[in-house]
Amino acid sequence: MSDWQPKILAILCNWCSYAGADLAGVSRLQYPPNIRVVRIPCSGRVDPLFIMKAFQTGYDGVLVSGCHPGDCHYLSGNYFARRKFAVIKPLMEFIGLEPDRLQFSWVSAGEGERFSEVVTKVTKDIQKIGPITKMVKGV
């Protein structure tokens, strides 16, 4: 199992976390190549359905990352995101999905290092859980 490489969907807000991911690259910080990034305006744009859709497609894990609380480019979007996140994990548990497949983080545009740490940690966590089978279409 140790060689198995998970595929992880990373949904990043444009103003903080996506910029933080860019900074990680500019600073040449290395992190596992398992994430596939989708850029959205704000973490407040994230519909819980997006996350379910990703699991259905076959992503082994999902990372959603936005601006730090209080720093939202759109004033309050990340607070709404945070509220949604609070209910979606119990839902995953309820339907028998390991809640740790879904992770949230706050990474600012200046935190390239934090971004690479987050991705490294998330990748390791998902590796431990193993491949997704529940919910995936065609499985």
């Binding site: 990680a24 690259g25 500019v26 040449r28 596939r36 850029r39 690479s116």
Partner: peptide, 25 residues
């Protein structure tokens, strides 16, 4: 598709995986 800042620069020692990621992106 951001294959430099978020790919080639971040996975400099894993060219094959970086290529695979670039295709996906």
């Amino acid at each position: 598709a951001n294959i430099r800042d978020q790919c080639s620069w971040a996975h400099m020692n894993e060219p094959e995986k970086a290529t695979e990621k670039s295709k996906d992106l």
